[in-house]
Nucleic acid binder design. Structure first.
Length: 755
DNA sequence: GAGCACTGC
């Protein structure tokens, strides 16, 4: 043994260059793995997974759960018989980066034993056994394979974030697990297998499961192991949801963070944030500052105010480098947060929620948290989803302060008094309670779950009422109950409203079953239901080629960008700003169509496509794409959005071809396309009123055409629109001109002809 | 004549 070792060492010593590096690196990785807090409980975790079909793991930040547990399970034999360990993540970047890290730790090529799958990218192969993916993607897989038969273990990571996809997935997995451990083999003989959830495996899906079973020569599907991982304290919610499932706790590795509160509530949190930035800069030791703000506007105003005040400081104290970061910022500007500041400078990062979970910024020692956040809400009665600024939850405040303790002890300045913290909600309202549910319902229906109201949505535990009962008066108990009742009614209303929409689109039958083929086809498309409908209708109007482009362009964030209003920041003159504005308008005009924004988007896509194809003739793919980015810049087009639209276009084109729809073009005649828009967006129609405003026909709201629309000045009599946004007024965006009579002809279920 | 947090298929 000893001699073996020494010869081995001698060999390494003789190695030079890359190979020695390789061994040094492997050794470093092994050391790192062994030092992770989760390594100490490896054996116990494996035992718990063996003994429990469902396990909740509460792992604090830095415990190593996401990278290590799948490897432990693989080595522990949980992939025997070719089963796959699937790990879901709420975000694409997380799935990719973690998979890369784990493949490196395993010393294998990414896409072999360890791989990942996200929309537009599948880096897996037949030999993949540890598969990282987004939770939305696993939901899509469930549509094709309702038993998720290729997985032996499914790990739902970051479950505490409670995204819509995670919530639906948890409800579904609960049922899949029951089906697989109990009646999997019986299903071959019966037409339907009904589980507790109301999950009805209809014949079509049954065939899927059956064929899988037959394929494995009558072998019964092995039970599914389910692991729910959460970073927050409310493991109880998950445990109760899974019938009292066992929860284990894994320690994290986080440096201590000092929490500081204000003595008095602040009347102006922006001003307070500004003062705190300078206070830290002047009085505290080295370390970067992260400030959480609610949006671009706040970020830009704080940036300006800091720049204005800096010159008033003594020269030696002026070394502050201000870096904004928010999602719509071009990626090259986002990258600035990762770059070291000039020597002697302190970085002040002004961020939205993007820095809470999505982006981890190194070097942060101080966090400033005003305690506010901008969230999207949903009003079922109007269908509007306004963004409002609200207080954060306790969990969110903890997550934010944790950002100061990643690399060493830190400080967090909460800009409100300590007693206010205890008044905050424990956790953020799950997204599913504040969003439009039509897509979720469509997916559940397609999975064979017909009883939407009875579906096992994960909910707050009832212990909340019990706790209140002990320390509150009878009066307040009934208040709490009323509140819960209201919550329930709100959910019911949202469900009914969404089902009504699906019914009017023809996706549901009178008996509120998924219609065939329209409903089934709509569920297969990764799009908003209205967009899916538009593609299906376009087949009949012979304009599917055009509609694919329109839908892809509508599916992405703002394609056109206007020059930034805060021209002062760039030290350029007002004249130059006006010049830029007129340039961007000229650029838009060259694509614009008098029929509306939909055709303008079509023209823009085609112009870009033409440019790219021409460019490809004379240069390499890479060069051509670079040229396209330049072309985008010249035409005031957001190249990231355009790239996204191109990806979506090629994906949905494949989808509709597989579904057997005919991708035909209406050529230069845009009439069929406009009629087709009317036939699918009929619920978003509006008529001009005498005063020049519009009345949205389905909600009765008074709306105006958004100034960014090409029809802003034209004001046609009758329009359809893509979305209704509420800011200072009700605005409709992405608008097209239609003929009112088309509505009565193409959507008689909504618009009966008036005698 | 306007400004939109963050994700995902």
């Amino acid at each position: 043994m000893a001699s073996n070792n020494s010869t081995h060492t001698a060999k390494i010593n003789q190695l030079n260059g890359p190979k020695a590096d390789f061994f040094a690196r492997r050794q470093k990785i092994e050391q790192h793995r062994k030092a992770l807090p989760i390594a100490a409980v490896q054996k116990r975790l494996l035992e718990e997974v063996s003994n429990n079909d469902i396990l909740i793991i509460v792992g604090e930040t830095g415990s190593g759960k996401t990278t290590q547990l799948p490897q432990y399970l693989f080595n522990g034999g949980f992939c025997r018989n070719g089963g796959i360990i699937g790990i879901t993540q709420p975000r694409r970047v997380a799935a990719v980066t973690v998979a890369k890290r784990v493949s490196e730790e395993c010393g294998v090529t990414l896409g072999q034993k360890v791989g990942y799958a996200i929309r537009f990218e599948d880096v897996t192969s037949s030999s993949t056994r540890i598969k990282y993916m987004t939770d939305g993607l696993l939901l899509r897989e469930a549509l094709l394979d309702p038993c998720l038969s290729k997985y032996s273990v499914i790990i739902v990571d970051e479950a505490h974030e409670r995204t819509v996809q995670t919530d639906v997935l948890l409800g579904l997995l609960k049922t899949v697990q029951k089906t697989r451990s109990s009646g999997a083999s019986d299903m071959v003989h019966s037409d339907h297998a009904k589980a507790d959830n109301g999950l009805l495996l209809e014949k079509e899906e049954d065939v899927q499961c059956t064929s899988t079973l037959k394929h494995s020569r009558g072998k019964k599907l092995s039970p599914l192991k389910l692991i729910i991982m959460s970073a927050s304290l409310d493991a109880q919610i998950f445990s109760e949801f899974f019938g009292g499932a066992k929860a284990v706790h894994v320690q994290g590795r986080q440096y201590p963070v000092d929490i500081l509160y204000t003595h008095q509530p602040e009347t102006d949190y922006l001003d307070a944030a500004l003062i705190t930035i300078f206070q830290i800069h002047l009085e505290e030791g080295p370390g970067d500052i992260l400030v959480f703000l609610t949006g671009q506007e706040e970020i830009e105003s704080i940036e300006r105010l800091v720049q204005e005040r800096l010159p008033k400081l003594p020269e030696s104290k002026r070394k502050l480098s201000i870096i904004p970061i928010f999602a719509s910022l071009p990626s090259e500007k986002q990258m600035k947060v990762f770059m070291p500041p000039p020597v002697g400078f302190r970085k002040v990062i002004l961020a939205t929620n993007i820095a809470e979970t999505s982006v981890t910024i190194p070097g942060i020692k101080y966090v400033i948290d005003p305690g506010m956040v901008k969230v999207r809400t949903y009003d079922p009665s109007t269908g509007i989803e306004p963004l409002i600024i609200v207080k954060t939850s306790k969990a969110q405040a903890l997550q934010r302060s944790g950002r100061a303790g990643r690399e060493g002890p830190g400080k967090c300045y909460r800009l409100y008094p300590e007693n206010e913290f205890y008044k905050l909600k424990d956790s953020t309202t799950p997204e599913i309670k504040r969003c439009n549910l039509s897509n979720v319902i469509l997916q559940l229906k397609a999975l064979g779950i017909d009883d939407i109201v009875g579906f096992d949505f994960i909910e707050e535990p009832d212990s909340f009422d019990l706790k209140s009962a002990t320390d509150r008066s009878a009066h307040s108990i009934s208040m709490v109950k009323d509140d819960k009742f209201l919550c329930y009614m709100k959910l019911m209303m949202a469900i009914i409203k969404s089902m009504e929409l699906l019914f009017l689109l023809g996706a549901l039958t009178d008996a509120s079953k998924l219609s065939d083929p329209v409903g089934r086809q709509m569920a297969k498309l990764p799009l908003d239901p209205i967009y899916s409908k538009a593609l299906i209708v376009a087949d009949q109007f012979n304009c599917l080629e055009e509609m694919l482009i329109v839908v892809a362009m509508l599916s992405v964030e703002s394609i056109f960008y206007a020059p930034v209003k805060s021209w002062k920041r760039y030290y350029c003159s007002l004249l130059f700003y006006i010049f830029m504005c007129s340039l961007s308008r000229t650029a838009l005009r060259s694509f614009s169509s008098s029929e509306g924004d939909h055709l303008t988007l079509l023209n823009t896509y085609r112009a870009s496509d033409e440019f790219l194809e021409k460019s490809k003739l004379v240069s390499s793919q890479e060069k051509a794409e670079k040229n396209l980015r330049k072309w985008c810049k010249e035409n005031f087009i957001n190249s990231r959005s355009l790239k996204h639209a191109r990806d979506i276009h090629s994906q949905i084109r494949k989808n509709v071809e597989q579904m057997g729809l005919r991708v035909t073009s209406c050529g230069d005649d845009m009439l069929p396309l406009r009629r087709c828009l009317a036939a699918s967006f009929f619920l978003n129609a509006a008529l001009k009123q005498p005063d020049g405003t519009y009345r949205a026909l389905s909600s009765g709201l008074t709306v105006q055409i958004h100034p960014s629309s090409v029809l802003f000045r034209t004001k046609p009599e009758c329009i359809i629109f893509d979305e209704l946004v509420r800011t200072n007024q009700n605005y409709v965006r992405n608008v097209s001109r239609i003929d009112y009579l088309w509505l009565t002809e193409l959507a008689p279920q909504c618009y009966a002809l008036q005698e």
